[in-house]
Simulated scan of single mutants.
Amino acid sequence: MATLTIRNLDDSVKQALRERAARHGVSMEEEARVLLRTGLSGPAEGKESLWDRVSRLREKYGTEDLEIPERTELAGQREVFADWQDNQ
């Protein structure tokens, strides 16, 4: 097994790793190994990727075209506070 040293790691990243490791009950090193392993290997065996899941759901349920309402005014061509009155 190899050893990897990471220099100039932001304090916020180190703290996030420390908190994540604590939530999972493992060391920071183990949490970093898990993150690197899963990040580089893609979806775990038996688990589908997000893209595969979305594709499967689209095949099952289809897609829906949304009706887009017609624009009546263009941005910048209407007065933003046209209906607002100063009651002073």
Rank of each mutant, 00 (worst) to 15 (best):
M1N: 06
T3S: 11
L4N: 08
R7Y: 10
R7S: 11
R7W: 10
N8K: 09
D10P: 02
V13I: 14
V13S: 08
K14P: 04
Q15P: 06
Q15V: 10
Q15S: 14
A16M: 06
A16I: 03
A16S: 12
L17N: 02
R18K: 12
E19V: 08
R20T: 09
A21F: 05
A21S: 10
V26F: 06
V26Q: 03
S27H: 05
E30Q: 14
E31N: 03
A32Y: 00
R33G: 01
R33E: 10
L35K: 00
R37Y: 07
R37Q: 08
L40T: 10
L40K: 02
L40V: 07
S41K: 06
S41V: 01
S41R: 03
P43S: 09
A44R: 05
A44V: 05
E45R: 02
G46I: 10
G46L: 08
S49T: 13
L50I: 09
L50F: 13
W51I: 06
V54D: 05
S55V: 14
R56Y: 04
R56A: 12
R56W: 03
R58Q: 08
E59G: 01
K60Q: 03
K60V: 01
Y61L: 08
T63P: 01
E64D: 12
E64I: 14
E67F: 03
E67P: 03
E67M: 02
I68K: 01
P69E: 11
E70N: 09
E70F: 06
E70M: 06
Q77Y: 13
Q77M: 07
Q77P: 00
R78G: 14
R78V: 15
A82S: 12
W84V: 15
Q88H: 12
Q88F: 14
Q88V: 15
